[in-house]
Write a protein that binds this DNA or RNA. Structure first.
Lengths: 197, 197
DNA sequence: GTCTATATTGCGATAGAC
DNA sequence: GTCTATCGCAATATAGAC
């Protein structure tokens, strides 16, 4: 196994194990054994367990960099909101471990939170607020809408849908084949509210 | 210190420490030292660290038992939704550690998840769905509303508001004096949607 | 019921061979 | 660059004194 292969394999294994049991729940012995390399490789390549965790975190949140494209697209403002919802669903579908790092760092922050996690989440939130502000300026959205609280609503529905999966999956399917229905339903609530007219 | 005082003190200290650093992030040495008792008391009274964690979890989720009162009240269905939002805000305001156990158990479940946490969350979700179904039957809510997805929306906004606090508090205040505005805004989105008419 | 002292295990890190 | 072997420390649990 060459240098890059070894590093990638360690990050891959560490992503799963750290996600499943947290930074303190996994030992470097277990990590190195699962990756099929020597225990000393973690200190050598990453400077220790925390360094490896930092690398995992950086890779996990790198996808947040592409969120700006949604706001820069030349489309109607409601389409941007739907694009955000689709983006976040794809994000969680492609990476089943992301939500664990997301919530773990938000509620039990490590030393890497402020450098890696907080800026990533704040950026997404800012862009959601900008989209809402654009809708208000264009006279598309209600003028008394609070951009921040509206951003909480948009982000909250989808994030909570995935967050609550293990407690609600026996009540309603969380499989990808229902994603389109979920998206339509989110958009319906935002556009129509829940009341019968 | 007598028996009950000692047990209560250990649970109190453990609640804060487990919330801040997770089950694996705290040692029984540190717990017993912070509580001012001997390390052996944890094994003696709780059967070990996991037993103490289980007691903490049970106390944290005991408040979920009162949710049924919201649905049994003889009030209008929109008022029930607002009552749920108020209930969940009060819950988090009264106990700043609850959300950490909530998200930690959802994304990194311990052996106690299925016995303590999952039933509590599922029950709340069921009641939210019942409220939505009642609204549909009463012709108050849209007939094409999916109760489950609507429940995700209602629970998602408020839970995400608290979940994201440490990443968004520099953008918008999360202090209790803005709670009423948040509640009004949630209700406005559900009743009016976000569009300008 | 509570303590101190200790047994035992597993941890992260690293020295040194190759 | 990767390994094996080991050091020093901290973990949980418990035996036994009081």
């Amino acid at each position: 196994m060459d240098k890059n292969e070894l590093r990638n394999k360690l990050v891959l294994i560490a992503t799963r194990l750290f996600a499943e049991r947290g930074l303190n729940g996994v030992s470097i012995r277990e990590l190195s054994k699962a990756a099929g390399v020597s225990i000393s490789m973690i200190s050598y390549h990453f400077g220790g367990k925390e360094g490896l965790y930092s690398s995992v975190l950086q890779e996990q949140f790198s996808c947040f960099g592409h969120i700006e494209e949604i706001n820069n697209a030349d489309v109607e403002v409601l389409t941007k909101i739907e694009a955000y919802i689709r983006w976040i669903i794809v994000r969680y579908r492609n990476n089943p471990y992301l939500l664990r790092f997301y919530t773990s760092e938000l509620t039990n922050p490590t030393q890497f939170f402020s450098l890696i996690v907080q800026p990533a989440i704040e950026k997404v939130f800012q862009i959601l607020m900008q989209i809402v502000e654009e809708g208000i300026l264009n006279n598309k959205f209600r003028r008394d809408l609070n951009p921040a609280d509206t951003a909480f609503a948009i982000a909250g529905i989808v994030n909570y849908y995935f967050l609550s999966t293990s407690a609600t999956q026996e009540i309603i399917s969380h499989l990808p084949d229902r994603d389109e229905e979920l998206i339509r339903h989110c958009m319906d609530i935002f556009t129509k509210g829940i009341l019968h007219n």
